[in-house]
């Protein structure tokens, strides 16, 4: 197969804080090919957004980011000048954020902001940029696209704004699109529409997509690959099929217990949740970060935890090769 669009090896992100260094991301690896959708799941604070921002080169200056490899379409992102990164951002890689209400500039029209995304990277005139903006608004399912161009963000609903953000990200037909919890801030009914839209566009434009989400129901529908993060580490990753059919890591298994299954979960039944809190990320950490919450933890979990592989890409970190009580 072709060269992967994105290859991340041993990515770490450190944030210097008054109380010590916060190791927000602790050596993660994954890769992604054209046309694939990778979902990153994990609870709040596990480092999903920082990982996305690191790929885009958008981490704030005080954060330190290191990687053994950070390749995008054969380009070593670690070695790119700020100028070269700017040329890639918005053109070949684009990002959609969680907060549609505040992610558009209130002072400019939708049209101005869409056209800017194209004109920053392509030597096109206003008329051409406008035509492209109308085309993309149509693609993201906005009716009367032409009249929307002169509207301001405050005149649009959250769902519409997120559609505009998606259109903006796609203006230059990127190879990679990163969507960081694009639906969390929206109404439940709108959420499904936006996700379907993203999945359709990803297929239609043959992009690589990283979708960050809390929602395993979403993952089940659109992911090709899944990365499960916990406390800045990848605790399990594999194809969507492997993750859903033979989850190995206790954290993944816990997450899967939390989603309702149609037909099996009865109305009113208590949904599972994982009790406990994430450990502090400040300072050095030994052993498995999940052990304070893991119900199959053992003494050995406090020292080095082996990385295990089954099949081609399925990887997880746990002292148990097969979970007690799991079908193998």
């Amino acid at each position: 197969m072709s060269e992967p669009v994105l290859r991340v090896e041993n990515l770490t992100i450190d944030i210097p804080m008054a109380q010590g260094t916060l190791h927000a991301v602790r050596g993660i690896d994954f890769e992604l090919k054209r046309g694939e959708t990778l979902c990153i799941v994990g609870e709040s604070g596990s480092g999903k957004s920082l990982t996305s921002l690191a790929i885009m080169g958008l981490l704030s200056k005080k954060m330190r980011c290191n990687a053994a490899r950070l390749d995008f379409s054969g380009i070593d992102l670690r070695k790119q000048s700020p100028r070269a990164m700017r040329a890639l951002r918005g053109d070949r890689m684009a990002m959609i954020f969680q907060e549609p209400m505040t992610s558009l500039n209130p002072a400019y029209t939708i049209g101005d902001q869409l056209m800017e995304a194209l004109q920053l990277h392509r030597p096109v005139g206003r008329a051409e940029a406008r035509a492209r903006a109308i085309e993309l608004l149509g693609k993201v399912g906005i009716t009367a696209a032409e009249s929307r161009l002169s509207q301001y963000p405050h005149q649009l609903s959250g769902g519409l704004r997120q559609r505009v953000m998606i259109a903006m990200a796609l203006m230059c037909e990127p190879e990679l699109i990163i969507a960081d919890e694009p639906t969390t801030a929206l109404d439940v009914t709108i959420q499904a529409q936006i996700l379907r839209l993203l999945a359709d566009l990803q297929r239609e434009m043959n992009m690589a997509m990283i979708l960050v989400t809390h929602d395993l129901g979403v993952v089940a529908r659109i992911a090709d690959k899944v990365v499960v993060m916990y406390a800045g580490e990848v605790v399990e990753k594999g194809s969507a099929r492997e993750i859903f059919e033979t989850p190995r890591h206790p954290y993944t298994r816990g997450l899967l217990r939390c989603i309702p299954v149609p037909g099996k979960t009865r109305p009113g039944e208590h949904l599972g949740s994982i009790p406990g809190i994430v450990p502090s990320l400040i300072g050095h950490m030994d052993g498995c970060a999940f052990r304070s919450r893991c119900d199959v933890a053992e003494v050995a979990c406090a020292s080095d935890v082996p990385v295990r592989r089954t099949g081609e890409d399925h990887m997880y970190r746990c002292i148990h090769e097969v979970q007690p009580g799991a079908p193998s």
Binding site: M56, L58, R86, A87, L88, R89, G90, D91, A94, M95, F97, E99, T102, S103, L104, N105, P106, A107, E116, A117, L120, H121, M165, M168
Partner: peptide, 26 residues
């Protein structure tokens, strides 16, 4: 610190453009 400034950077706008076009006007 606003989200739309991050959006402007994600589009590939230069720092000068971010400052004067996107931030100063607001």
């Amino acid at each position: 610190n606003a989200d739309y400034i991050r959006t402007a950077r994600a589009k590939g706008a230069s720092e000068t453009r971010v400052m004067f076009k996107h931030a100063l006007r607001n």
